[in-house]
């Protein structure tokens, strides 16, 4: 069964077409990322799928049901974490999740279990205003999951987190997906999408430009590999003579960079001449895909 089936979704605000004929199909148990610059239409697209906004055209079915008008039965099967920390003011961590649990008719014991899973047990008596950014994100995710939803939407869950907190959160998000839930995530971090998502949709100007696995997207980019050799190992002339090397760039700090479309041959050559020490290989990344699709100019 498909978790999300969207056909020809349109949303316009005055002259602006925020979402322009978007099709999206997400299978059950999939982890799908939605990438795109600011203002690409990611949030509007998700809000239509979540049933918060009525599409101007097209149709959405979620878990086999229509999302509009508001459908309480469906809402109980969906969990949504919004960008901001949407909490009741001045409640403690525990009171907060208990309140959300009551809204879904869930008892206190499962709510407390979620606090344990997101590592907030020693913070249960802390007021939400006194939580760090990472703790607030984890609480907000726990509140989104408290009713054990089949489908989870996460809107930029790791923005404004330090690297440790981000990696910890990745583990949590993977475990949510491993338990069989479908997860839809928006993010600005390409490494995050690469690490977590089965498939990635890149959006710009209201359209979905591509939708595929991170690996095929990178492969489809057909970008050359860049092999960096430690300084002093190779000189420019010798580098250019290596079989398979298309171009040689100098990097003052790191040494010489060999640009090639045939990394296996170049690496084999380097290996036989015992020049592999300190070598670094960089193939295309999702970031390259993103930039080649959406361009480099600043967005609002």
């Amino acid at each position: 069964m498909t978790a999300i089936l969207a056909r020809g979704l349109i949303k316009t605000y005055g002259d602006l077409t925020a979402v322009d004929h978007v099709d999206l199909e997400v299978g059950e148990g999939e982890f799908v990322g939605v990438l795109g610059p600011n203002g690409a239409g990611k949030t509007t697209l998700l809000e239509m799928i979540e049933g918060l906004r009525r599409p101007d055209g097209g149709e959405v079915r979620v878990l086999g049901e229509a999302v509009w008008p508001r459908n309480g039965g469906l809402q109980a099967r969906i969990g949504v974490q919004l960008q901001a920390s949407s909490f009741f003011e001045r409640l403690t961590v525990r009171e907060q999740i208990h309140t959300f649990a009551s809204l879904y008719g869930v008892g206190r014991a499962p709510a407390d279990e979620w606090l344990e899973r997101v590592g907030l047990v020693d913070k249960i008596s802390t007021r939400v205003e006194d939580l760090s950014g990472g703790q607030a994100q984890r609480l907000s995710i726990a509140c989104a999951l408290v009713h054990d939803p089949e489908l989870v939407f996460l809107d930029e869950p790791t923005s404004a987190l330090d690297p440790q907190a981000r990696r910890n959160l990745w583990d949590l998000l993977s475990s949510i997906n491993d338990a069989g839930r479908t997860v839809v995530l928006t993010t600005h971090h390409m490494d995050e999408a690469e690490a977590l998502c089965d498939r990635v949709a890149v959006m710009d100007r209201g359209r979905v430009l591509v939708l595929d696995t991170p690996a095929s997207l990178v492969r489809g980019l057909d970008a050359p590999a860049r092999i960096t050799v430690a300084p002093g190992v190779l000189d420019h002339a010798a580098a250019l003579e290596l079989p398979g090397v298309a171009e040689v760039e100098h990097d003052d700090l790191d040494g010489i960079v060999l640009v090639t479309r045939d990394p296996s041959t170049v690496l084999a050559e380097l290996a036989t001449s015992r020049r592999l020490d300190g070598v670094r290989v960089q193939t295309g990344t999702l970031e390259d895909v993103f930039l080649s699709l959406t361009g480099r100019e600043y967005r609002a």
Binding site: R70, G73, Q75, F87
Partner: peptide, 18 residues
């Protein structure tokens, strides 16, 4: 205003409470 700013209004709209 506070609930609208913090998006709690949106969050409540997503829960199965009228």
């Amino acid at each position: 205003q506070g609930w609208r700013q913090s998006k709690l209004l949106r969050r409540l709209q997503l829960a199965p409470v009228g």
